[in-house]
Design a binder for these strands. Structure first.
Lengths: 338, 338
DNA sequence: CTGAAAGCGCTTACAG
DNA sequence: CTGAAAGCGCTTACAG
């Protein structure tokens, strides 16, 4: 509870003005090298840390970045993606002494309101925007408010926001190509939330690939990512007239649920049905059969996103960063078509 | 990008001093009801939001709470617990216009350093401390620094920190009682990280229950919560001379891995082996057989923790809050002993 | 290269 | 019940 050291303390010890201390501490011109070294030594010795509040008030950055997630808790909890992504974000932010403000909100309106508040209260230097949906208002809102933002997803036309993305369409192509190569002609897709932009990108890619390969059937069913809807979609597909011989899923929990449904219907995996998960996690490995999945380095994805954010707020650098495309890891849940 | 309104703007519009505005806005005595209403109306009309930085500098709270998680990303990602807990925390914090700072760190030293920085920079009003380990230095460090903190776990002796906890020992008792009731005499426990306090509490409870029921065997194996170690522990137990007829796990991922191992060893679940998961999530439902698990309302647990934090920083209220004990949900993975 | 001073937007004793 | 003023800890033109 002892009083925190301030630049005034450093200034008096060093026998200079607080202005000089500020220049020295921030590595700006205006002090001699000798003075700078002396100031830095004193700052370190007395354990000085900048007050974010004071810096913020003086108009400088607050060294904090916001991340708002608009998904229900039970879905977030079951998607290892988010924690891994956050972990990657954190690794870069904390190395740069920048805090992460996290907010989980129930819907889009709450997400917008959260950004407005954070910005109005000057809590953040910028926000990371993920899970974009079609006609998402957020990029426009952020531009209007003047909030620096990094888009996690496909770059927006007309807005000069930096974006970090991964080629989902190419990943989907690789899955369809693989299944076709081992003889499948009836392939289904169990998609995530249809309102999300990346769901739409994947569905479009899936349909284009089906067209290209002239598949016999290529139905798409939408879900909310929960195992219930994944299981229900699978049940519907497997009891339909034109039963698919392979199904791809937009996450791994639904692929696991599919294993259960196949078991329940006495359909053998992979002999009679091949299953592919759209995300890879330990879950896919623990099943029997283990599940073929699209894998990518999500921690790295988060780290790149955080770096793009820092580049943006530190020196206004924008740009589009493409991260490696997910690669297919074949496991025991896929085999030649029956 | 237009200039944000300040209390000076409100003051000039209302024809009063900024001091009066401050009193009115904070609901403190010093202004007449009429003036207060006028001020509040103007504030609302011009879209005023307090500057957290200014409030912080003036010595008031910053309306932010920190949460530091010291587990590897791949473990965090596979534990639905954390996101659900965070979601509960968030629901209470955001209703009180309080931000959550989240930091994921690799180890205990990094966790300590993170608290020091946050506090030194005046970024937070307090921290939530979870995953306490035996001889955890954090409560002492926090007391020394004077950081308000809420312990998620067993209350600490000698330190007057509020704690929110759940009776893990009673939950373990209920599991052992249940298994004994259906005839099991050789019950094993696959525990999480042995350094964590709640692991130790559970192990002690397990051993006491084994003693009480005079079990034939009650081995305990420690793991790091990953499916690899869970599978390895299971393999070791199932190939030992005194093979258990029931195994309880400290999370659900390991219980799922156990299903795989049993399958690999041609041991039928639940006929020859009963399996109980220490956490409940959708994962337990999606398996076949579905997994018997200890369930509790984790979102509520997070919410209560956040409330305890607000009570502490708002009016210094401390105290111990016990949350409901986890209850056993019997499913298809447990049956009478062979 | 350095010093003195204003200003960021609040809160809070202290007078009136 | 209200006003005037100091202070929180920085940054940044502006003089010297």
């Amino acid at each position: 509870m002892s009083k925190r050291p301030t630049i005034a303390d450093i200034a008096s010890q060093a026998g200079v003005s607080t202005g000089a201390v500020s220049y020295a501490l921030n590595g700006r011109p205006g002090v001699s090298a000798a003075t700078r070294d002396r100031i830095l030594a004193i700052a370190k010795e007395i354990g000085w840390h900048p007050s974010v509040a004071a810096r913020s008030m003086a108009g400088s950055r607050v060294n904090a970045v916001g991340l708002i997630l608009a998904r229900p808790a039970r879905v977030l909890g079951m998607e290892p993606f988010f924690m891994q992504f956050i972990s990657g974000v954190e690794s870069v932010l904390s190395a740069n002494r920048t805090a992460l403000l996290l907010q989980l909100v129930p819907d889009h309106d709450a997400a917008d309101e959260a950004v407005r508040f954070w910005w109005a209260e000057r809590r953040i230097d910028g926000v990371l925007v993920m899970d974009l949906w079609a006609d998402d208002q957020r990029p426009a809102l952020l531009a209007e408010l003047g909030v620096p933002a990094v888009i996690v997803g496909r770059p927006r036309k007309g807005l000069d926001l930096p974006a970090v993305w991964s080629d989902d369409a190419a990943a989907i192509d690789s899955v369809v190509d693989y299944l076709v190569t081992i003889g499948h002609r009836r392939i289904a897709r169990v998609a995530g939330l249809p309102s999300l932009e990346h769901t739409q990108i994947r569905t479009a890619a899936f349909q284009a690939a089906a067209e290209r390969h002239k598949l016999d059937s290529a139905p798409v069913v939408s879900t909310d990512y929960t195992w219930e809807e994944g299981a229900q979609a699978t049940r519907r597909l497997l009891t339909s007239a034109d039963r698919p011989t392979a199904i791809t899923y937009d996450n791994d929990l639904m692929a696991v649920a599919a294993l259960s449904v196949a078991h329940e219907l006495s359909i053998s995996v992979p002999d009679q049905l091949s299953i592919v998960a759209g995300d890879d996690s330990q879950l896919c490995l623990v099943q029997h059969p283990s599940i073929t999945a699209l894998a990518r380095d999500i921690v790295d994805y988060g780290a790149r996103t955080a770096q793009a954010m820092l580049d943006l707020v530190a020196d206004g650098r924008t740009g589009v960063h493409q991260t490696p495309t997910a690669t297919l890891i074949p496991r025991a849940s896929t085999a030649a078509a029956p």
